[in-house]
Amino acid sequence: MSRIHDMGGRLGTGPVDPQDGYDFAEAKDWHKRALALNVACGFLGQWNIDASRHARELLDPTDYMSFSYYEKWMGGLADLMVDRGVVTVNELASGKAEGVSPIADKAAKPESVEAVLTHGSPYTRDAAGPKFAVGAVVKTRRIARNVAVPGGHTRLPAYAAGAEGVVVLQHGAHVFPDSNAHFKGEAAEPLYAVQFSAQELWGDEADPRDVVVLDLWESYLEPAQ
């Protein structure tokens, strides 16, 4: 059973509003602040991008659906900071700092923010493989789940579990979120773009011409029989 964030294919969400939140410059002040706070706290080096995604996924489904986008980010951030021992629950509840943090020297500095953010942090690593060639027919794992950590983070959406598709791109080996999100190492694996016919995923209500492509790690895949 996947968590609430796994939105692909979900029914009942209503139409998309193309005018919704179009320009970041026009966003509410607290939206901008929430974004910046999340980005800045990443500089502290106490977690990785996969862990921060997982923190948002762990929100209670009721919160997840009622929170606006940046509320999810704030909820995940606060939970992650307590989990990593960066702040205490008492500090969150009282709003009062219990002394200066021992990692305060890592705080993002105004003069270096732009350089760090435009420097990037690539996710490609050296690793064995790839096992599948472009054009190979593969089948995704069913059930979509983290096999090492029960209930843990995975990037195989439920809608694409147990489906047969074709490798269309090899991306090299990338950090494996199912491991990295739980601080169990980067465990890089070959990553592929795999194309599925829309009807394979959604049945005959989908247009027979259409396709969906997902980026999937090698251990999510097996050769199709």
């Binding site: 702040v87 200066v100 943090s101 705080a107």
Partner: peptide, 26 residues
């Protein structure tokens, strides 16, 4: 939510983990 962001920013600033001027830059 706006107060929540403010509360967390203030707490983190007081702990030396966030410099508000860095947030402005971001």
């Amino acid at each position: 939510p706006a107060l929540r962001v403010k509360a967390l920013e203030t707490l983190l600033t007081n702990k030396g983990l966030v410099n508000p001027a860095a947030l402005d830059e971001i």
